[in-house]
């Protein structure tokens, strides 16, 4: 694999609220190589968005705080970088696009102005040059009549167009890393596919590494090289897309994949994992998924599992691997008997 562009080492981001300290991100480690697309998957409340905001230092503080851990960007730790340094990183080196294209653009400024603002912030170019580049970027992301759209206001564009504009804005400075926080959640399916295609081609063309945050396994299988599955603030499984989809190791991932509709099976109703995500608690002992896990046994409630390293750089946080059995075999012998 190529060089590592972005690496998180044991990242802890906690929220200090009136009802106590909440470890929203509890020891997350992951690597993003150059030109790679890594997906972070998990339910709402699993800490995936907080992870991405932590990288950018955009956690609202208080109540949030990056408690410990390292964020290595091109082998430099930016976890405790100054605000001034972070402003240079944001947009220029690590760009971000958000979930809601409808509200991510300032309604009072033209599309062009907003792209130009970012370009001129990080590079010394004239307004004219910046505008020419903004138009070029808009063309690149497939916006028709870009030279006119550049002078239009956000309310004149549709959601899909606005998300393209957001991508153009993010890509205008050729960032090393693009963090996309559920970029297609608010869009309908056909537009979704177009936006994903666009991101894929930008990733190929410009070798931008993408950290894609989503709860949609369909999007993941289409886009990503590797996947990190998060649950209740922790990484529970990591592996390549193929491995995760075809052969999930952690019971939670298994549940997620089982709950996807399958074209080849006739099913009356879709499977859903019982219960809801446990709110991350401090000093919690036991597996966080245990209460919802169909394979749970005594040990799961008494000890906290570590990430087990499996073959091919795979990782999974489940005691079943200690029993020397895969989930499948264990399930066969213990549960369904």
């Amino acid at each position: 694999m190529d060089e590592v562009v972005l690496e998180l080492k044991d990242l802890h981001t906690h929220f200090f609220t009136d009802s106590g300290e909440i470890p929203a991100v509890d020891g997350v480690s992951l690597k993003l190589h150059k030109g790679e697309v890594v997906g972070i998957v998990g339910e709402s409340g699993s800490g995936k968005s907080v992870t991405s905001l932590s990288i950018m230092h955009l956690i609202p503080k208080p109540p949030g705080k990056l408690v410990s851990g390292e964020i290595l960007f091109k082998s430099e730790d930016i976890s405790s970088a100054s605000e001034k340094k972070m402003r240079k990183v944001r947009g220029n080196e690590i760009a971000m696009i958000f979930q809601e294209p409808m509200t991510s653009l300032d309604p009072l400024f033209t599309i062009g102005n907003q792209i130009i603002e970012g370009i001129r912030l990080h590079e010394k170019v004239s307004k004219k040059e910046a505008k020419a580049r903004a138009i070029k970027m808009l063309e690149l992301v497939g916006i028709p009549r870009a030279d006119e759209v550049v002078d239009e206001f956000p309310h004149q564009l549709s959601g899909g167009m606005r998300q393209r504009v957001m991508i153009a804005m993010a890509m205008a400075l050729n960032p090393e890393v693009l963090i996309a926080d559920e970029p297609t959640t608010a869009l309908d399916v056909t537009i979704q596919a177009q936006i994903l295609d666009l991101m894929r081609s930008l990733n190929k063309e410009k070798e931008t590494s993408i950290l894609l945050i989503t709860h949609d396994l369909g999007v993941v299988s289409e886009m990503c090289d590797r996947v990190v599955v998060m649950y209740s603030g922790q990484v529970v499984e990591e592996g390549t897309v193929r491995e995760i989809i075809k052969d999930p190791q952690h019971p939670y991932t298994k549940g997620l994949i089982r709950s996807l509709p399958n074209l080849h099976k006739k099913e009356q109703s879709l499977y859903s994992i019982p219960g809801t995500v446990m709110r991350p608690k401090k000093d919690f002992v036991g597996c966080r998924f245990a209460s919802r896990c169909e394979f749970a046994f005594d040990r799961c409630f008494q000890e906290s599992p570590e990430l087990y390293s499996l073959d091919n750089d795979r990782q999974s946080r489940c005691f079943l691997h200690d029993e020397g059995k895969g989930v499948e075999e264990f399930a066969d012998t213990n549960i369904r008997s």
Partner: peptide, 14 residues
Amino acid sequence: EEEFVMAAKAQGLK
């Protein structure tokens, strides 16, 4: 709390 303010921050604006 608007996303465009967050987006502006993510662009590196002061």
